[in-house]
Every structure is written in structure tokens, then in C-alpha cells.
Nucleic acid binder design. Structure first.
Lengths: 234, 234, 234, 234
DNA sequence: GATGAATGAGGGTTCATTCAT
DNA sequence: TATGAATGAACCCTCATTCAT
């Protein structure tokens, strides 16, 4: 998968580039094209979101300070309010902009016409590479953390991510059942069971990995073996 | 399971009882005072913990206000500091006192000599009744939320809960393997796979249940069917 | 006394640098604003220090409330923290900014080439006018009050004031000895003896003057008569 | 001079002794003689004052905590209020009980019929030994520190200490003038000039001695040489 | 648009004082 | 008399948000 989103650092670099684009030669005001201005605005938005990602995921919603977000983004504190109405809106935008893109890719993969096991392995790899080993992992953790206090956020996440992912997985499972690749039809009713180890991976990596490292890929393999009824000799 | 720990409401009742306990009989002065005082102190501690549970789980660590904890516990703000050195200590005590007891019960159950499936069902029921349908669910969510910012807490939780639970489950799985009740030995390496749907249950109930109710017991049944290779006809 | 004042902070310097970025021409908006802003900032700093002087000298370090300092300075409580990192820093800045300047003047006077007695009288007058009859008296009292609890402060005061004043007085005494204006060379070893009545003046004015007014100038005259061995007829 | 007051440590020991007087044999209530009880009460008062001396002189009035006073005195916090109506009363009692006794001795010494210089040297020695090298030094510093905030305290100190000391010194000076031991009659009008170096000693020892040790006895000698017009060869 | 100084409500914590035992 | 748990007002400091420039 090609990156759907620039990484934080890349975004920052981009912002810097944009900022220095007209070199030192102070262009007369108004000469700068509207398009360039819009682009600069977009770059700033990105920079702020990237900074917010770092701060929110490091400290949580309450403890994250907009001062730090601003400093990290290289803008003034007030500038944040030009792009986001308040701290909460920034948080929601953050979730939106970093998580949604991945879902599209997920849906795309589930539509590939291939044996379930192959698709599943691909999904697992996608999940590990794009989420577990990424800052996105922290965003998801943030949703679990703050979701109850921000029902809107939980709802958005349910609509945009959970339900879409569940549908995609459900379709995949149904096809697998029809083909006889799996036999337990209860999985169709509880696609959560397919995803559950992914959750474990996210939390474990964040909380316990330094105490007891977890090989996520191996765990997910074992998980699929289980689902497909593969028997390993003791 | 009989409670190892009094419930908040019970604590309050206990406090009242303690207050009225030595009715009329003239206990030697000092002894009476000391005993009653100690008991009252314990009751207060309980009350504060119960209140903290409500506030922390409703708002998270940072956003919870000790003012509210005090009010809810029916004590003055300063009183909290007689029992806990600061907000963080209160939080840790909360986790300790509400979670640890359950682990003991869990370990106990895993040592019962019965068919794996039966023990597993029992564990599931215990888990649902004592955690998922309880405030304890919120505590666990809190650990996931705040664990990264309080490494001590995560460590404590790992030592007290995770590693003990994993050992217990591992033992159970090993016995099941030996008896031929399960055939996938990878489960012994990843007991997390057994527990993963429990995690899903905790988070789902807290965040998405109002949008899309989840029948946790049914899901866990399906999970076990999967593990035991039970094939249901489509 | 015209005083040199330190700039608010490094942030200001940085701001100025940023402001000067658009070359030098036609300083439109921005630069003018920057100048006005900087000036306003300096004025605020002054206002806060003046307010702090009142509050600290009226109540002592611990009992002085920053709330009152803010109110008196006509700023919000939080504003104080834009200029001083905390209460202690404010206190130290106060001492620094009000006391240090006087020492320079003192040193200057001791270098005047004139008969000792004349210089001494001038110093006394300076001391009375600029310290005893001024709020500076209270600052010195504050140092005596809080010095033990803030060793840094005592050290600063020793370095900036005491040792410099002692050196200056010592030089003066040495010249006087050489010229035969005084004969007791022990004074050179204990310049404190010259200054001691000044201390008395400071404390007496603050604590006992309303009960028993003291004519400080007359006392200092008598002090010099003593040193110079002037004999008055009984 | 014989100690008029028990030293802190002695007081504590005395308290302990009093406490353990009836050994372990719980005497029936009421049997303990009223006299013993009064004695015990006095001992407690002493213990509290001694503890207060330590705490107040170490931290100042505001910053001293009654909790620490109680702990140091070996009594409960509430007990302090049985002996002193509030923190301020404790402070004033402290000053009274530790300073007043010394004044009596001072007055006594000034009435000795001996050459002024001899008496002066004796006074200096008394001052150094009983005040400068003692916790009393801190009490005097406390009066300077807190005097302005507690006018009652300053007034008490003026009446009990300052005015009595000044009278005594004045009498001494008058006799010295009459005998021709000194010639500067202005000293009679400003006895403060005699005492001033004592002040310097107190403050210097507390604030600057670690930076620049001061030989107080030598300084006072030099002071007297000055007053008596002793000329030392350069 | 962009800035960052200024605001001020709010929270954690302390501690003199009280009072039931 | 003695205790020490309990109180709650007070205070320092933070930080989201605003607004003049």
C-alpha cells in the first residue's frame, strides 16, 4: 500500500518547504496567488494535525497542551484556532484524518477475489504495518481512552471505522463459508472474533511490550490457524 | 463468586453499621475509641475509593476532579489526603483494590479438575458477571487509557493481573492439550488469543453498545466453538 | 536614579528578530506594533515588580499573595507568570532590580577624592535618602527576614551588595588611614562597624519609629563624631 | 550567667522524664496529685515552646507548620491549643519566654560598679555567648522579620527589651561620662550606636557566615577601642 | 491570515483550627 | 486533659481561549 497520508515528519517538512517557497524576496502583498495561499493553509493544517497526533497520543486528551501542539507545529497558539474551533474539534479532526483512509484500503483488500486465508494474511500484514507499528495505534488507543467522554467521537468511529470494517469482514467470511473454507458460521455473526487479536496487539504494544515483547505477526498466524482448523502436532 | 471486596454501597452501609455498633455496652475507654476509629477510617477509605471509581471511570484520570470525589464520598477535600498521598496514589489504590481480588478467583477456577470446555465456560461467565457487567470494566478501560502515561501502573497491572492470568490460562491449555481436548498447541504460546474476545467485550460495552448492542455471552460461546473445532451446519 | 532594565525574556529577543525579518524598508504594521508591544511588556514588568514590592514588604514572602500582587499591578493572575517563572523568581527579581542600582552609586561616591568625613557625610545622606526613607528599606528587611530560607538570595545579596559595599568602604578607610584622618586601623578589618548604625536605622524605622521616633541623620552624625574622635563638651 | 531557661533538648528530656514518671502502672484516674499534673502541664508547655523555637526560627512564622511543632514536641496537634490559643499566641509566648530573661541579666550587669570598659567587655561576652551563639539569635531575627506584620509583637519587644536595654546602657554611659571614661556625650542620646554592631553580628551569623565567617568577639573589641578612643599603631 | 500577550476560571494541595472520642 | 481525624478556606500555578495588533 502506498501511503494515503503523509507522515507527521513529512508533513512538517512539507510545511517548511511551503513556507520557504518564496525564498526571502518579500512578495508584494496580493501578488501571491490564491492557490498558493490555500496550499499554505492546507500545509499548516497538516502540520497542526501532525503535532496534535504526537501530543495527544503521548499525553491523552486532557493532559495534552495546545501550547506544545503549536510549538511542535511551528505556529502560534492562536493559529490553531484559525483551523479548528477548539481543542475537541482538533481531536476529532485528528482521528478523522488519520484513521479513515486506512478503512478504504481495508475494504479494498477484502474485495480481492482470492482464498480467504490469503486475504486474511494480507489484511493482517496491512494491519500490523499500517496501524500496530504506526502512530495510528495510538489514535485507536485514544479512542478507547476518550470515547466514553466524547460520545460523538465514539459514534463517528463506529460509523466510519467499526461498522465499515465489520461489513467488509462479514462479506469476506460469508464468501469463505460458501466456498467451504471455514465451517463455523457463528463467525459471520461475530466478526469481532476475527479482529479481537488485533485489539490485543494494539494495547499490548503500547502497555506491556517493554515488559514482555509480543510477536504480533506470529500471534495472528496462530489465530488464523485456529480459525481454519489447522492442527499442529504437539 | 462471593465478593472479596465490599461494593461501594455496601461500604457505606458498613460505615453506618460501624458507627452504631457499640451501642450501649461500656467497653474500656480507648479500646472502644481505637477500634471504632480504625473501622471508621477503613470505611472512609472505602467510600473514597468508591467515589473515585465513579469519577475516574466517568472522566479519566486527568479530567476527574478530587472535589467531586470528595463530594461523592461525603467527605471534605482535605480528607482524601489523609488516606492517599495524592491523586495518582488514589488512582493506583483504586486499581489495586478493585482488580486484584478477581484474579485470585480466576486462578482458583483454572485449577478445577474438569473438562476444559466446562472450565472455560465457567471462566467466561465469571468474567462477564464480575467484570463486563460491573464497574470493574471501567477500571480496566482506565488502565488501557492511562497505562502509557503511568508506566508504574501498567507494570503493576502486568504483574498482578496479566501475567498471573496468562499463567493460569496457560496451565489450563496445557492440560487440555495433553487430554486431547484441543489440538492447536500455538494457543499455549499465545494465551492472549483466548482472552482477546474478552477485551473486545469490555471496550464494546463501554463505547458502542448503545449504537449496536453486543451479546457478549453468545460471542464467547462462538469463540469457544471456534477453539474446540465445533462445526455448526450452515 | 535612572535605571537600566533587563528585557522581559528571550522570547522577546526572538520576537524582535522575527520582526526584523522583512528587511528594513517601510516598516509597515508589525514592526511598529512590536515596538509598542515590547514597551508595554516592560511597563507591565515594572508594574508587577512595584506591586510585588508593596505586597512582599507588607506581608513577607510566604504571606504575600500573588492574587494581591496581580490586582495591585492591574493585571490578571496568570500574567505574572508571563514575566516570572514563579513566586520565588519574582521575589529575587524584586531584590535585584531595586537594590543593585544603589550599590553602583555607592561605589561611585566612595571614589570621590575628598576628605573622609565629607565623603562619609555624603554617603550617609545618600543612604538615608535612597534607602531608609524609601521602600528599599523594606527590601533590605526582607532579605534579613527571608535570607536564611533562601540561601541563594542571601548569596546573591552578599555578592552584589555586601561584598561590593564592604570593598568600597574599605578602600575609603584605607585612604583615610594613610592621610591620618582616622587612626584606628581595626576599622579596615571591620568595615561592618561603619555600616552598623545604618542597619539600626533600617530596622528601627520599620519597627519602632511609631513608638519612639529616631532622628537617623543625627545618629549618623554622632556615629561619625565617634569615629573621628571628635570630643564634645559634656 | 546561670541558665534562666531550660534549653530545648533539656526541656524535651524533662518532658519525657515527667511522662514516664508513673512508670507503667496506670494509676487510677484522680489519684495523680494535682501538683504533679500541673508540673506535667508546665513541662508540656516547655516542650511545645522548645519545638516552636526550632520550627519558627528555621522556617519563619508563616512557613512553620504546627504539625511539625507538635511532632517535635511529642504531643498531638490538638494539644497545642490547650496551651496556646492560636499560632500567633504561640509565637508571642515564644518570644516572651526566651528573650525576657536575658534582659534581666543585662540590667544586672550594667549596675555593677566597675570601669566602663570592663563592664562593656562583660556585656559583649554575655551577648555573644547567650544570644549570638544561641537559638535566641534566631528569635531576634524573627522579630525583625515578622515585627511589622505583628505590631503587638514589635511593641512588646520594644517595651520588654529595647527600652529596658537602652535605659540600662544609657545609665552606664552616663556614669562613664561623669568619670571621664568617655568624652562623646552624643552616645547618651544614641545608645543604639553602642548596640549596633551586636545587630550586625546577629544578622551576619545567620545569613553570611558560611560565605564569609565573622569573628564577632574581635569585631566588638574593635568597636570598643573606637568608642574609647584607643589608637592602635598602623 | 497570523501572532502571542493577556485573561481568569479551575484544580491539586496544604495547613490552622475544631471537636468527637 | 489529650488525641488526631476531619474540615474547608486559601493559595499557587496551569492552560484553553480571546483579541488587539
Amino acid at each position: 500500500m502506498r501511503k494515503t497520508r503523509t507522515k507527521p515528519s513529512a508533513a512538517a517538512a512539507q510545511r517548511v518547504a511551503a513556507a520557504s517557497k518564496n525564498g526571502g524576496q518579500a512578495l508584494p502583498d496580493g501578488v501571491e496567488a490564491a492557490g498558493a495561499r490555500a496550499k499554505r493553509g492546507a500545509a499548516r493544517r497538516e502540520a497542526i494535525l501532525a503535532a496534535a497526533l504526537e501530543e495527544f497520543s503521548a499525553h491523552g486528551f486532557e493532559a495534552a497542551r495546545l501550547d506544545d501542539v503549536a510549538r511542535r507545529a511551528g505556529v502560534a497558539k492562536g493559529t490553531i484556532y484559525l483551523y479548528f474551533s477548539d481543542k475537541e474539534a482538533l481531536f476529532q479532526a485528528l482521528v478523522r484524518s488519520y484513521i479513515s483512509p486506512v478503512v478504504g484500503t481495508l475494504e479494498h483488500v477484502t474485495h480481492v477475489d482470492a482464498p480467504f486465508r490469503a486475504v486474511a494474511e494480507q489484511l493482517a500484514e496491512l494491519f500490523v504495518r499500517e496501524i500496530v507499528e504506526t502512530r495510528r495505534r495510538d489514535i485507536i488507543r485514544l479512542i478507547f481512552s476518550e470515547g466514553q467522554r466524547f460520545p460523538k467521537l465514539a459514534e463517528f468511529y463506529y460509523r466510519e471505522v467499526i461498522s465499515r470494517a465489520m461489513s467488509a469482514v462479514r462479506g469476506l467470511l460469508r464468501r469463505a463459508l460458501e466456498r467451504g473454507e471455514i465451517t463455523n458460521e457463528a463467525l459471520v455473526r461475530f466478526p469481532q472474533l476475527i479482529v479481537a487479536p488485533g485489539l490485543v496487539a494494539i494495547l499490548w504494544k503500547s502497555l506491556f511490550d517493554r515488559l514482555d515483547p509480543l510477536d504480533v505477526r506470529a500471534m495472528l498466524h496462530a489465530h488464523f490457524d485456529n480459525i481454519f482448523g489447522v492442527r499442529r502436532p504437539a
